[in-house]
Design a protein around this nucleic acid. Structure first.
Length: 269
DNA sequence: ATGGTCCCCTGACCGC
DNA sequence: TGCGGTCAGGGGACCA
């Protein structure tokens, strides 16, 4: 489900509601997520949430004792609700606060994760990640260098979190369309100026999507339980057979790297 | 190192 | 209305 815009939308939604709050209890109703929910999460009890950060698609709840690392996987969402609200099916974890609210993780498919680290950026899952798309380092020169000699489809390169983080299946298709690059083109056979277009497009699409509160295809919802509205702005994703907004030819759907890919064969070469 | 495949899990949807 | 098949926004593990 959530790519960078959805995770950032979630971060912005929960930050003002939990930053500075002291945790009074942690409840884990289902610990079998992608990995078992860390028992260390209990360390939050009595501690204050000093910051809510995002790195790639991970949310970091920082306390003086360490950080909870939360990943939403494909179907996860976080809401802040009153403690009295009864948990529904798939509401696996609650973090309760002194003011009578709690942060509640729902994740039907259980591909998400709740881990613990004293130094989250050095955690095994985070330490080898590539730059954030909004990092000035992420530009055409960088992408061109990382692609040198690579034969994989450019779409797969764009979705490789060691190269750049946060670009998932929806926004990879969208950015390649905006940049006029065919998703199957071998990564090593794209010029530096075209990679500059691509890095610009990635940033622009992600920023616009954040502005719309993310994309809700099926079940994404923000901290208030509301959907995101970028779905109506998608040019190609989930639009097989419909006209390309640029040129009107039919949008094609193919599988690349086990993932559905959408593109316009006329605009993208 | 690189590229390709498999799979974790539940729910929605589609055709019969 | 029920049933089986297919697909889904992530990404680690494993293979050649």
């Amino acid at each position: 489900m959530p790519e960078l815009p959805e995770v950032e939308t979630t971060r912005r939604g929960i930050e003002p509601l939990i930053q500075g709050k002291t945790v009074t209890a942690v409840a884990v109703r289902e610990k079998r997520l992608r990995w078992p929910v860390s028992p260390q999460l209990e360390r939050l009890v009595g501690a204050q949430i000093v910051a809510v950060r995002r790195r790639a698609k991970y949310l970091l709840l920082d306390s003086e004792r360490g950080s909870a690392i939360i990943h939403l996987g494909m179907s996860g969402s976080l809401r802040v609700v009153a403690i009295g609200i009864a948990p529904q099916r798939h509401d696996h974890v609650d973090i309760a606060f002194e003011n009578g609210t709690c942060l509640r993780l729902r994740d039907p498919r259980r591909f998400g994760a709740v881990l613990w680290s004293r130094d989250p950026l050095q955690h095994k899952l985070l330490r080898s990640l590539g730059p954030e798309p909004f990092d000035p380092l992420f530009d055409g020169v960088y992408l061109h260098a990382r692609a040198r000699g690579r034969k994989i489809a450019v779409k797969s390169l764009l979705m490789d979190s060691r190269v750049v983080v946060g670009v998932g299946n929806i926004y990879a298709s969208e950015a390649l369309h905006a940049a006029g690059i065919h998703p199957r083109r071998p990564a090593g056979r794209i010029s530096r100026p075209r990679y500059q277009r691509l890095s610009d497009a990635v940033r622009e699409i992600l920023a616009r999507a954040i502005g719309f509160g993310g994309t809700t295809l099926r079940d994404f919802s923000n901290a208030q339980g509301k959907p995101g509205y970028f779905r109506h702005e998608l040019a190609v994703y989930d639009r097989a057979g419909q006209p390309c907004p640029n040129c009107g030819s039919a949008i094609r759907q193919e599988t690349i790297g086990q993932r559905s890919t959408y593109y316009c064969s006329r605009c993208q070469r």
